[in-house]
Design a protein around this nucleic acid. Structure first.
Lengths: 160, 160
DNA sequence: TATGAAAAGATAATCCC
DNA sequence: GGGATTATCTTTTCATA
């Protein structure tokens, strides 16, 4: 059974989810450890899956994707096989960054990256509506992001 | 004026947004260059902002955040100062991972990380509804992610 | 102007305490 | 967990095309 995280582990995660290009030595200094134990902790955090990976954050706007759109999708009831096809399809479409199953009126919600409106309109008809089981798409177009983060909160919020 | 990206730059971005823990040497080999030119390209991609940063992806479920929720928020018209306060507030709340201004019925859309339903209910009343200008919150609870990615598409999709 | 080989410097990874 | 060592990688330099 893996050991639970202590305050230093949390601190390491906090620093690394902001900037993982910091060297082990720098991290060690900031959390008050020497290099070897800090390196061992990072290793453990990766092995035990607390850190899922180290990735470069690419600027989507500089690459021509000016729009972020949420597509709420209504679907028919799918068989096991159709569902598998659906998953395979969305995972092969890079413009669909995320896809969640949701409660309520609609059945799925997708976050989509698009160069412009014309492209997106084409995308709805040529791609989204041709996905297995998709019968309707309602789009929520975003105008701009006030906050954009992948960071996970590392201090539990208290209500009182 | 920065030089436009060529096929090798694109390949580097593609690899690094999947795994930025690859060494320059490994990347170089995979894109068909030797280390120095590959290193210089990476440097340039960072300097010119194509790569916004290198971060650790932390597993939110392992840290107790089992729920991902979309909160659609209706707001009053804000003055410049109120708007600044709103931005400051959402940026200081780590459970709000993203916030977009949106077209349509609602005014903002937030992606929120929550440990459980009870916590989220508290969060709505103790935090969300107390944000400057917020008058209503409608929540879309996700049941599970079929796809979850930060990756930006690096090959333009063709329709025909 | 961009490349590649190689040197110098820094960091990661392993050892032992 | 810490200190010291070795292996590896990053970064700079320089010669070349």
């Amino acid at each position: 059974m893996p050991a639970p995280l202590d305050a230093i582990d949390i601190k390491i995660l906090e620093l690394m989810q902001k900037d993982a290009s910091l060297s082990t030595g720098e991290l060690a200094e900031r959390v008050g450890l020497s290099q070897s134990p800090c390196w061992r902790r990072i290793q453990r955090l990766r092995e035990e899956g607390y850190i899922k990976g180290i990735v470069a954050v690419v600027d989507h706007e500089k690459l021509g994707y000016k729009m972020q759109i949420f597509a709420q999708v209504k679907m028919t009831t799918l068989t096991e096989a159709e569902r598998a096809n659906f998953y395979k399809a969305i995972n092969s479409i890079p413009e669909i960054q995320d896809c969640w199953t949701v409660f309520g009126e609609m059945d799925a919600m997708m976050k989509i990256l698009a160069p412009d409106v014309a492209w997106y309109q084409d995308f709805i008809f040529s791609v989204l509506l041709k996905l297995p089981g998709v019968v309707d798409v309602r789009s929520i177009v975003t105008l701009g992001a006030q906050k954009s983060s992948q960071a996970v909160p590392l201090v539990a919020r208290q209500f009182r």
